[in-house]
């Protein structure tokens, strides 16, 4: 029989280590989680081939949490980039935010891509063919610039197009390793790019980082209701999980024809777009970025959009959003401000 969960590149991607015991069968429906206190004792556990393993596995807090906290202690700000909807520009926004923060040479920035099944960050940052080096102190991120490091599963794949066919627990294991085993060093900002949805990756990143303190989440959306519908769920998730929402960013908002400069709404905001959602939810609206085909092209070729088109309206929109975001995090509007120089 073919098993679907073929481990991809098992040498390159070490098995998750941690509190979860090794299971002999997939978890049943209503599984309390092999590492939970009730493991092996719930009604759902009756008849499960894993019952004995779960029941006898050592319980208590995840022993890896203190290790993660030790790694995260040297990182000043941790920001999650979330959206319930896919393809709205989470990764694009993450990479632009990273480039923007890294413009100041004294700011150290890290990007952690926890979209396991569809990693986009490496290509957008022009580092698709890089691989990760490991040393005794951990995995070192791939450096795009002196002060900009990136970590993604894409760097671990033997072939660029390999599918990562993993169920939840394996994804969680890798996310844990990204936090525990990567030598991030002293960072000012760690940006965490997430996959769409509200599932394993989101629950895990939240529980792993709970003790380390996350500044909050930036929620990205596009203007149309089909997208807002899913984003509403993501905000509901943030509330339930206790993650502070720093603000909503509306991407792909309006399109200016390069030929006649006439504006049109490709993704029509029939219900008021991100701004109305922010007002409805009582969350700051950080701003809107218009659709610019050049952003997509820059992403495809892994170029920094800021450097290439600093004058474009999209850049202006982004700069405003970053200013607003810094405000939400209680930081000065820009890193290279004169006030900062005086302080030091």
């Amino acid at each position: 029989m073919i098993t679907l969960e073929v481990p991809v590149a098992s040498e390159d991607v070490p098995q998750p280590s941690g509190a979860a015991p090794k299971l002999v069968a997939p978890e049943p429906e209503h599984c309390p989680g092999p590492e939970s206190q009730q493991a092996g004792k719930m009604d759902a556990c009756a008849g499960c081939p894993n019952q004995q393993i779960c029941a006898t596995a050592p319980k208590g807090p995840d022993p890896d949490i203190p290790l993660i906290q030790a790694r995260m202690a040297t990182i000043a700000h941790k920001i999650l980039i979330l959206s319930g909807k896919g393809g709205v520009g989470k990764s694009t926004f993450t990479s632009m935010l990273a480039y923007a923060f890294a413009q100041s040479p004294t700011t150290q920035v890290g990007v952690c891509d926890i979209d396991i099944c569809g990693p986009s960050i490496p290509r957008m940052m022009g580092a698709e063919n890089e691989s990760i080096h490991s040393s005794s102190s951990g995995w070192s991120p791939v450096y795009i610039a002196d002060n900009l490091g990136v970590m993604s599963i894409q760097f671990m794949l033997p072939n660029q197009d390999d599918a990562i066919i993993w169920r939840g627990p394996k994804k969680n294991g890798l996310i844990k390793q990204f936090l525990k085993d990567v030598e991030w060093g002293d960072l000012d900002f760690l940006l965490i790019d997430t996959p769409p949805g509200t599932s394993d990756e989101h629950l895990s990143i939240n529980s792993y980082l709970k003790g380390s303190g996350v500044d909050g989440a930036v929620v990205v959306t596009t203007p149309q209701e089909v997208s807002l519908l899913d984003v509403r769920k993501e905000i509901d998730f943030c509330r339930k999980a206790g993650i502070k929402v720093l603000g909503i960013v509306e991407n792909m908002s309006g399109f200016v024809c390069p030929n006649c400069e006439g504006e049109s709404q490709i993704f029509h905001a029939t219900t008021g777009g991100g701004r109305a959602l922010a007002a409805e939810m009582g969350i700051p609206f950080l701003g809107a970025v218009p659709l610019d085909p050049r952003i997509g092209i820059a992403c495809d070729y892994g170029e920094g959009f800021f450097d290439a088109y600093p004058e474009s309206p999209a850049c202006e929109g982004l700069m405003n959003i970053i200013k607003g975001l810094r405000g939400q995090m209680g930081l000065p509007p820009s890193e290279d401000g004169v006030e900062e120089m005086d302080e030091s």
Binding site: H30, C31, G84, K233
Partner: peptide
């Protein structure tokens, strides 16, 4: 409610 999130891990989704 249409805004309710479904926060499920793998096994529940599989079921």
């Amino acid at each position: 409610d249409r805004g309710d999130s479904v926060v499920w891990r793998g096994p529940k989704k599989t079921a």
